[in-house]
């Protein structure tokens, strides 16, 4: 098991999300950065959809009462193991009594801690993801707090010392340094006037500090509507960009509601979700439209690369443990 010895600001258990219940108003939740969640799982040889701990800065400090194989991916909060710096995107074998602590945020917003074989937690409606609003899933449906104990499914019985494995996942291709976030048009894009339609594609937007797992609010040119009809509540998804009545935009994130009544001007493509999620408040972003066909193609290729990475990791782990 691992124990939370110091509470983080908002750490939760998340997996790939709870699908199949949105018709009941139950939203999927799940990891904000699904790529990083899968990479962390891949590095420790897990099923890619296994539940992990999603960490925000300042993150919790953990004490391992069980020797474990762990990996951290996504944001880099300068993890330290027993005071010694360790790298992210690299599997690490740790003995009983180890303390994992995070310090300076170097990059990103959400980090993921995966542990070989995962946590021994109940699922709710087929998922371990935490739904804080409904108080279900994860650990008692809430963020982690001091003295929480998370039972683990597996113990690396013979781990005597910290072993950093000599390979690392190259994740840079999943976060390409593009100047824009790619989107496809929303059904109500032309409910905005001409000026706003152009501004959306030409001007920069700043991520508001009032952003969370539900949505990232954007500051920027005030968007004006030309079409005043009320939209009846209809489905929205992770990545939907809604136009709020005050002229601001919001990008809906993992904890989005299942339905909404604000005009959907665009949808961030799935391939760019992780890159957007890892932005910080006050970061500037631009949007660019691409075709639906391209978006699908990009996402499928991303998933294929994750699977390749996972099989590479599995191979390395097998090799390592056979050699021993």
């Amino acid at each position: 098991m691992i124990e939370v010895v110091r509470k983080g600001i908002s750490d939760t258990i998340q997996d790939a999300g709870r699908f199949g219940y949105q018709h009941q108003g139950i939203n999927p939740n799940g990891a904000m950065d699904l790529v990083a969640m899968r990479v962390a799982n891949a590095l420790v040889g897990n099923n890619l959809e296994e539940a992990v701990i999603e960490l925000c800065h300042p993150a919790s400090t953990f004490k391992f009462e069980t020797a474990s194989l762990i990996a951290i991916s996504g944001a880099d909060f300068s993890p330290r193991l027993n005071g010694k710096k360790i790298s992210i995107n690299q599997p690490v074998c740790i003995p009983v009594g180890s303390e994992l602590k995070f310090s300076k945020p170097l990059w990103g917003t959400f980090a993921y801690l995966a542990i070989h074989k995962g946590f021994e937690l109940n699922t709710w409606l087929g998922s371990k993801s935490t739904n804080v609003k409904a108080g279900v899933g994860g650990l008692d449906g809430r963020t982690l707090k001091k003295s929480d104990v998370l039972p683990l499914r597996f113990s690396m019985a013979d781990a005597q010392e910290v072993t950093v494995f000599p390979w690392r996942a190259n994740v840079s291709e999943f976060y390409p340094s593009l100047e824009y976030i790619r989107c496809i048009k929303g059904n109500e894009f032309d409910w905005m006037n001409r000026r706003s339609q152009i501004d959306f594609q030409k001007k920069s937007f700043t991520i508001s500090p009032q952003s969370d797992r539900m949505g990232y609010r954007l500051h920027g040119p005030s968007m004006k509507r030309s079409h005043k009809e009320e939209l009846l509540s209809t489905a929205v998804t992770f990545g939907t960009i809604q136009l709020l009545p005050n002229g601001e935009l919001i990008v809906l994130m993992a904890d989005h509601q299942t339905t909404g009544g604000y005009p959907r001007v665009a949808h961030v493509i799935s391939d760019d979700r992780s890159r957007l999620v890892q932005h910080k408040p006050n970061d500037k972003i631009n949007f660019k439209f691409i075709s639906l066909a391209e978006a699908e193609e990009l996402f499928c290729s991303q998933q294929q690369r994750i699977h390749q990475l996972a099989s590479g990791c599995r191979h390395k782990l097998l090799e390592h443990f056979n050699m021993k």
């Binding site: 699908f19 949105q22 018709h23 009846l232 509540s233 209809t234 489905a235 339905t259 996402f299 998933q303």
Partner: peptide
């Protein structure tokens, strides 16, 4: 599909493009 979400006058279907392809 992953989800079928009825609304007032619309039905939305959420799917995994990788699975469908």
């Amino acid at each position: 599909y992953l989800d079928v979400i009825p609304s007032y006058s619309t039905l939305s279907i959420v799917y995994d493009p990788v699975v469908i392809r």
